[in-house]
Simulated assay, not measured.
Amino acid sequence: MSDEEEDYMSDAFLNKIQDVKPGVSMVRRVKEAMKREEKHKEKNIQNRQKTFKEQENESRETALQTSISNENKGFALLQKMGYKAGQGLGKEGAGRVDPIPLNIKANREGFGMEELKKRKAEEELNDYRQKVRAKQQNEAKSLEDFRSRVRTERDERKVEADLRRSQRSCEQLDSQKGIAEPREAWYWPKVDAKDEDDDAEEEDDDEEEEEIMELTPFDKLQILTSYLRGIHFYCLWCGTAYNDEEDLCSNCPGDTAADHE
């Protein structure tokens, strides 16, 4: 090997190369750039002229945090009347100690607008509560009306069923005693419609018809059960024909369905 050619494996060549770890120089440069940017921002803030609003806020905060001095005429008058710094207002010192807080108005709304908005919001809230309350009352009333209607319809069906039972019992008991015709037409179950038409044709059209009040199923049931108890000593709800009136009164709970529940 000639003297002009360098030996890449020799110590002389390796010492010429700087020992740089991967990534270290890049991180250092980024940190230095960030520090320079922060210093630049700080200088800009220090050199920037404050706006009038910022100066006004700083002056106000400084004034509010500074106690009133003796040079203030109002404070001097209070001291002449016996007031001492840190003492509450009033004859006995029970009044305010701190000044009334300052509320800065940040919008262009007139005085009293805030109270008006608050009152309007309360009125809207009250209206909403009244509407909700009225809706709940209407729903409760509708539900109660529905339940009452269902109870009424159920009771009517029960009365009609009891009436049919009492009519069949009346026809059977009357027949056993040799009674050929019911005391009233409705005491026994209804006859065929054809027979009813024949009976209607036999009536004289010229004869004045008497007005008869239509009885309700409940009225018919009461009349018919009284007839069965008085004539046949029979209780519809017991389903028993007793020996006599004394036997009926002694052993039957009563003359209504409720008495037998």
Rank of each mutant, 00 (worst) to 15 (best):
D127T: 06
Y128S: 11
Y128D: 07
R129A: 14
V132F: 02
R133P: 00
R133A: 15
R133F: 06
K135Y: 03
Q136P: 01
Q136C: 02
Q136M: 08
N138G: 01
E139W: 00
K141P: 00
S142C: 01
S142D: 10
S142K: 05
E144I: 02
D145K: 07
F146Q: 12
R147A: 07
S148Q: 14
R149Q: 14
V150I: 10
T152L: 13
T152E: 13
T152A: 15
E153C: 02
R154Y: 02
D155K: 14
E156V: 09
E156D: 11
E156M: 13
K158A: 14
V159L: 05
E160I: 15
A161L: 10
A161P: 00
R164Q: 14
S166V: 14
R168M: 10
R168S: 07
R168C: 04
S169D: 09
C170H: 06
C170K: 06
C170L: 08
C170V: 07
S175E: 10
S175C: 03
Q176Y: 04
Q176I: 02
K177Y: 08
K177W: 05
G178H: 04
G178P: 03
I179M: 10
A180I: 06
A180H: 03
P182G: 09
P182D: 08
R183A: 11
R183F: 10
E184K: 15
W186L: 10
Y187C: 14
W188Y: 10
P189S: 08
P189D: 08
K190L: 02
V191W: 02
D192A: 15
D192P: 06
K194S: 11
D195P: 00
D195L: 14
E196T: 06
D198W: 11
D198L: 14
D198K: 15
D199V: 04
D199I: 05
D199K: 13
A200W: 05
A200T: 04
E201M: 06
E202P: 00
E202T: 05
E203C: 03
E203I: 08
D204F: 01
D205M: 10
D205V: 12
D206G: 01
D206W: 01
E207Y: 04
E207G: 00
E207W: 01
E208M: 03
E208P: 00
E208V: 05
I212Y: 05
I212P: 00
M213C: 02
M213P: 04
E214Q: 10
T216R: 05
T216Q: 04
T216G: 06
T216D: 06
P217T: 12
F218W: 04
F218C: 02
D219C: 07
D219H: 11
D219R: 13
K220D: 05
L221R: 14
Q222G: 08
I223E: 11
I223G: 01
L224I: 15
S226V: 02
Y227C: 07
Y227V: 12
L228F: 11
L228R: 09
G230N: 15
I231H: 03
H232Q: 07
H232S: 07
H232P: 04
F233W: 07
F233G: 00
L236V: 15
L236C: 09
L236A: 05
L236R: 08
W237R: 11
W237V: 07
C238D: 12
G239I: 08
T240N: 08
A241P: 00
Y242R: 09
Y242F: 15
D244W: 03
